[in-house]
Design a protein around this nucleic acid. Structure first.
Lengths: 249, 249
DNA sequence: TTAATAGTGTCTGTCAGACACTATGTG
DNA sequence: CACATAGTGTCTGACAGACACTATTAA
């Protein structure tokens, strides 16, 4: 037994883990981060990043999720939000378990690659997990057909949430690099939704949401007419702008 | 320690509870159910219904929430949905804790009153906590200024969620009796939103949502023109209809 | 008939979708 | 110049908000 030494004599306490669905956009495809498990159960298989709560250092499960991303994937302060809690006697072979699940969005260019040891090209910051290097890979979410535990269901739930929020919010800006053009942003929305969007309507909408602003510096000088660079507005920490137009009865 | 006897030597496992924000509408006011705690911590104080997961009988935390409502409040199969999971080292004096929180909506006429001992009508199953019968009361949510643990924050989050969903969904039908008139339903929406709504627009909207149907039987013969009775459509179990109009980018 | 509530018809301003247009760069 | 991408102007059908109207009961 554990902390509550007096009352719960009937049943064992559940196992508690925190899992993270880490998503990015790569070649117009939404991809999820998978780690190869170093230990049983399901040793050697690819799963969502996860781990136990460290009650001696984590302030809450959000902090635990951030720690797991930092430690096991080498990603710092991404957009991170609680998804849902999954539970049951069979989802983990070790017994009755609870998984508090978060989802995270990161721009593709701030992400460690697929090497057993992280590539040198990106992520110059020290990656602490070098000692027991977890293998990392990114897989398009629509290609993932099975995962250990109930991680496939968790992944599907997270993807559904992200796609759904894309319809009425500015969530996808968290998939963009530090600066980006509106055309790039539109391409990201289109990739997530699997639809073409009208340029005029898209720009009207983004402007209403009021979450991006012109970034200083030179415009993008591509093959043709240069494009204005934009960046995310930082209101407070990481607020989600939802169109007020969609909230009318 | 617990099931995972090998890896987590660093920190104690968190305490896991399931709490429920149980809401109903009474005299045009949204009210929450509060129970008087029979035990420490906060013995004698009024809190949200809650309890431990019984890993030997609960299929998941949703089932645990349903069991807690049935056992401790005497309410069977209400609308029940996961709200959010709260966690941290300080929210419960017993230690680092996780609360998986659900919210439930019930029609006012299917609800036990404020009696000291629970009525005999429900909960025929053995109630283990009969020794110290939990007292129940209903308080308007806007009058509740403080609660033990972090239950005030939890309550506020649930109320915000319900009011927000009222704007674009049919959630409030779960606050209605078995049959009801459209005027009554509109009054409930108005009470939740604190706004007057246009009758024509309201009826258009409810029709689009396609969640109510005409109920058989005599119309309501009140003081004046009789009104058609309606009832909730049962699609599957308890689906939530969201207006598709609000999901356009 | 009056009062009160149930329920419908319909006008209108607003806005999203559509699409044509201009602007500005490269080669 | 042709071409490609960036960015804007603007028309129009649909629809939500508003509100007047009819319908049906009791007293």
């Amino acid at each position: 037994m554990q902390a509550s030494g007096s009352k719960q004599l009937h049943s064992k306490a559940p196992i508690v883990t925190v899992d993270v669905v880490l998503l990015t956009l790569k070649d117009e495809q939404l991809c999820a981060a998978l780690l190869q498990r170093p230990r049983e159960p399901h040793a050697g298989e690819w799963t969502l990043p996860g781990g136990f709560v460290h009650t001696d250092e984590d302030e809450d499960t959000l902090a635990a999720a951030a720690r797991i991303l930092s430690t096991k994937v080498g990603i710092e302060s991404p957009y991170l939000e609680q998804l849902q809690t999954f539970s049951g006697p069979h989802r983990d072979p070790r017994g009755w378990s609870v998984a508090i699940v978060y989802y995270a969005l990161v721009p593709h260019d701030s992400v460690p690659g697929e090497a057993p040891a992280p590539r040198a090209e990106h992520a110059p910051a020290t990656v602490l997990s070098i000692a027991a290097p977890p293998r990392l890979k990114w897989r398009p979410v629509d290609d993932i057909r099975s995962l250990p535990f109930d991680h496939l269901q968790i992944l599907r739930t997270a993807v559904e949430r992200v796609r759904s929020k894309t319809l009425y919010s500015s969530l996808p800006v968290h998939l963009m690099s530090a600066t980006f053009t509106l055309s790039e942003l539109q391409a990201v929305y289109e990739a997530l939704l699997g639809t073409r969007l009208d340029k005029r309507g898209f720009r009207r909408r983004i402007e209403e949401l009021d979450v991006v602003e012109e970034a200083p510096g030179a415009p993008v000088r591509g093959a043709h007419r240069p494009a204005q660079r934009y960046r995310m507005k930082r209101h407070g920490a990481q607020r989600l702008a939802v169109s007020p137009k969609n909230l009318t009865l």
